[in-house]
Structures are given as C-alpha cells and as structure tokens.
Nucleic acid binder design. Sequence first.
DNA 1: ATGAAAGCGCTAACAA
DNA 2: TTGTTAGCGCTTTCAT
Lengths: 333, 333
Amino acid sequence: MKKATMRDLCDETGLSLGTVSKYLNGGQLKEKNRKKLDEAIERLNYRVDEYARGLITNRTRTVGIITTRLDNLFYSSIISDVETKLYEKGYAAIIKESGYDLSKEIKGIEWFLSRRVDALIIIPVGRKKEDYEILNEAEVPVLFLDSYIEGVRCESIVTDNEEISRHAIDWLISKGHKKISIILDKDNPYTAERRLEGYKQAFKENGMEEEDYRIYRINESIDSGYAVAKQIVTETDSTAIFASNYISTVGVVYLLNELDIRVPEDISVLGFDDILITSLYRPKLTIINQPIEKISQLAVDRLFELLSEENKEYKTHLLENELIIGKTVADIN
Amino acid sequence: MKKATMRDLCDETGLSLGTVSKYLNGGQLKEKNRKKLDEAIERLNYRVDEYARGLITNRTRTVGIITTRLDNLFYSSIISDVETKLYEKGYAAIIKESGYDLSKEIKGIEWFLSRRVDALIIIPVGRKKEDYEILNEAEVPVLFLDSYIEGVRCESIVTDNEEISRHAIDWLISKGHKKISIILDKDNPYTAERRLEGYKQAFKENGMEEEDYRIYRINESIDSGYAVAKQIVTETDSTAIFASNYISTVGVVYLLNELDIRVPEDISVLGFDDILITSLYRPKLTIINQPIEKISQLAVDRLFELLSEENKEYKTHLLENELIIGKTVADIN
DNA sequence: ATGAAAGCGCTAACAA
DNA sequence: TTGTTAGCGCTTTCAT
C-alpha cells in the first residue's frame, strides 16, 4: 500500500489541507472532527513526511555528527554522551563515520549540508585549513572535537595535550627515565603534534638533547600500535614507552600480554585515554585521561548557544587533562 | 547569505530550470553553457537540496541503522563493518542509538520512516511482536541483527546462541564443573534466553538438576556485571562463571582484576564476544565468538536483495559460533 | 474553527 | 540541447 498523505486524510474526513496541517502541528479542532481525523490517521497509518515539511520550515532539529570509526571507544564515548544530551533537548543526532579518510569525511559534510542539518559536530582527520574550505559555505554552526586547525571557520574543543604530555614526561624523567619512546598517531595530526611538543619540551627542561628523542609514528590501528611497540621492546633499549593515544595504548598493552613482558620490571608504560583499559589490564596502567563528560557537555552547551546567536562568533576551548598514576612506571633512579 | 537555489542558477546563467536540473543529474550541455553553469554553481556555493529532490524521486540511497549504544563494542564493530560496505555501494548509513530504551528505539524508527530511508537495520531491544507493530506499516525492508522475534515483519540474522552455549557448558562440565553461574543480560532478552536454554540443556544432558541452576541477571552495564560477578565470587562456591555477553564479560574481567582473583585457580571463567578483551586481559580468556564479518556481510547482501525484490520475503538466518579455548578454565576432575 | 491558494526547491514529462 | 509546466507533500498566509 502506498504511503498515505495529508490529502488522503482530507478525502477521508472531508476536512481541508490547512485544517489537517494545523491539527498535526498542535492546533485545535472541533471534537467531532478531531475524532474523525485521529481515526483516519490511525487507519491509514499516516505519518508526516519530514522531507516535505523540512522543505518549508527549514529547521530539522537534527545535528550531524562525523566520527572517525565507531570502534574507537574514546570517540564513541564522547559521541554517545553528546547524542544522549541532544536527544534530551529534542534534537536528533545523525552519526556518520569517516574511517580516518578525509575525502569520506568531506563527503559526509556535504551529505549533511544537503540535508539541512541544524548543526555539525566533527572529529576531523584533516590537517590544514584548505581541507575545510567547504565549511566557509556552511550556514550552520560547526564544532570540531579533539582538533584545532588555524583558520577553519568553526568552534573547537580540545584539551591541553601539550601541557599534560610535558608534565607526564617530566615526571617519567624524574623517575630516572632517559630512554623514552613516544608513539604518535599519524591519523590524528593535531593531537599528535601537541603531544610531541610536550614531550620535546620536557626533554629540553631536563637538559636532554634532540638526539635523545625516540619518536615512532603509526596509523590509527591497533595492529600498527602493536607492531611498533614490538619494535621498541625487542630492538631498542628504551626504559619507557609513551603510547600517546587510545589506539596505540591498546596496541601496546596487547603486545605486553603477547610477549609476556613484565611491567614495569622490563619496561615502563604510560598510556592515553583510559576507556576500559585499566579495567581489563594488570598491573594498573599509568595513564592520561581527557575529561570526556566535560567535553561532551561543553559541546552541547556551545552548540545551543551558537544555534541561538544571530552572528556566530566561534571560539576555541582548552580543557585540562589528568595524569592517573598506576603501577606501570618503575622508579629507576 | 541565503542558500542558493536552482532558480538562482537560472537567473545567473539565463538557462531554464529543466536544463539546470538535467545537468545536475548528469545531462549534457553546450560547452559554453556548461562553463557558465559551473561558474555560477561555484560562485553561489550551490548545493542540491536533498529534501526537495527526495520529495520527488522517493529514493534516498540511505539506510537507517539503530544500535543500542555506541560504546557497546560488539555492536559497534558490526555496524562499522556494515557502514563501510554500504558506503562502497554508494549508500549512506545513518546511525542512531536506542540507549537500550525501547521507546527511544521506536521513536528512532519513526524518525527514519518519516525521512524516507530506503531500508532499516536494527539491533532491537524489544521482546515481543507487539513492540514492533510499527514495522507492519513500513514500506521499506527491515533487518534485525542479533535478535529474532516471532511474528515481527522483518528479516533476522542471529547466531546459534543455544547450541554454542550448550556446547560450552557441556565442555565445562566435562572439566569437572558442576557449580556454574551464568550471567544473563536483561536488556538483550532474545540472546539471553537462547543462551540460558543452552545452559539448561547441557545440565539436563549431564544428569544435573534444576536445583543446580545458578542464574544471575544484569542490565546492560559493565558496573552491573561487575557487581554480580562480585556476588558470585564472594558469596557463593561457584567453580565457574559463564558471562554470557560482551558487557558482562567485561564486567567480570574488571572484577577479577580488582579483587586480584587468580584465574583459573580461584575460579574458572567463560566469556562471550571477544572484542579487545583477550588482547588486554591475562590469562587468555576462554570465550565464545560470533562471526562479526559474516554477520555484516550477510546483512548487506540480504539488504540489497530485499531492496531489489518486488514482493519481499523475509527470512531468518542462523550463523554458527565458535568456542575459543583459552586458559581460564581449570580441569578440576 | 475551517478552507482556498500560493509556494518551498526540486524532477520529469513533454514540447520546441 | 533547451524551455515549459505540473506537481511531490507539506506549511502558511489570508479569507470566511
């Protein structure tokens, strides 16, 4: 059976389009007509066509979200939070994946813009402002999470990656570590570079040299983190590994288990973004945590502010991170 | 600046609506006009309004997906797979969460149906056919993953939960275990009951009684799994725990770590759905795995078949699971 | 409280 | 190749 339209309702009830429309949008009807209409709606299984409605009203109460991959639990936790909060405010979230692929991400943005979302939340994989020229044409507010790119027309919420990284490495050094390998994620250029910057700064502050840097880069896959960790453990004399994001932390832990490496006796380990990891792995990992709840709350709050402002003024927010001391770093002084 | 429409393009170029539309949909133009049009599109930042287009074409090349929560890695892995496969075929996936809340799930279905998705993939949380009466009105193909509900008008892809559960418990019993606690998830009624059925059957086949059942039910949260596991470990003399889904498995492992319980010396453990768990936890968990890749491939294949069939005939598919023997079950014979 | 008519931005005949 | 026209299903004046 074909989908029923408002016109079918009119035919059934003898009412006019205008009347039916008004009722559907909360208007009043004479009791008799109301009953007839309700009945017709029920019988014909009528459902408003949001495409037709959206064409006129121009508001969809919908926000588009682009994440990297659903199985990145760090991002999924944030998105899930954001989705719940939006839902409570009567907004529908639509989630799409980029798969760490910039062109797919851009297509996703276009897809959303063609479909009149009211706002856009993106966990971007691009690295320069040219990647996001499309956003200059967007009439809706755009929010970047976990990345800031100079010159892109959008709000950004990031954490102080550089400072926490500097702090953590400084602390590692104070425990006697000088041979510290850092694993960076190529697919997250912004955070990776900030974290590397902190690493370098801690080295500098402690009188260490550039020759002391031990920098490894992976792409966003657990296997890739695993492989690099293996290389570090088996082929170098590093006393500590700093896995500087969620995926690489999982990869490193995976390797530690596989090779039965004693932590922190054989090597010290510092991770990033504890989603489930310290619940599942022993000894308890020393790890840096980003404030997921704060990020998602701020994202939603700012989104609604931007939605209501006439001339939007985009800001960048910097949230603080936390170093959680576990049992995976040895004092080798 | 207001969004440009096709009419604006006409004004700019002197061409007519029909011509512009045809070009936008792959038609040919005289070189001169093509250039003018391309230029106008660029200058005005024109983008097709899919709402207006969809109103006419009635096809959106979009499939709506409703999962439970993004942070359920088992489901997220499947969805992520499905999304990638759909994307490769030129279809856009829209993902929404139910949060294990039936009414939110139904609202999600309505949302999708009002927006003309071409098909629907759902990981349902309902338990009876009355919950899904709305699907009787759906003109688009619907696919349930990980759940089968008698009488609901949809395709279903499930795995043989009962058989693998029976097999695993039978194996546990053969290792000398008689005091086996099973943790079931209330929020996943279908799989929980099938798995419980397998548990009971194994008991029966081994001459054990109903009094021997040790059944615990949780809701879909890691904390809930943790709490029940604690109860089993500290208040009962169970020799084995069967965590019968992903979330409860994580909860159990979490507890084992927290209380420093030796596995399998203190208690034997059997889990379900290994996503990351055996990578992060030691000793290697004995665990039942469902064929994620096969599920997502079958889902996409059937979806396109249903999309092309005139009179859809819904089927139910039963895939096989696998028991992966790790080191968390002791032989106590 | 209800109806008539215009039009949102686009596609799809059909004509030229 | 290009233009004209009707209409997708709805909302929104403006009348009645």
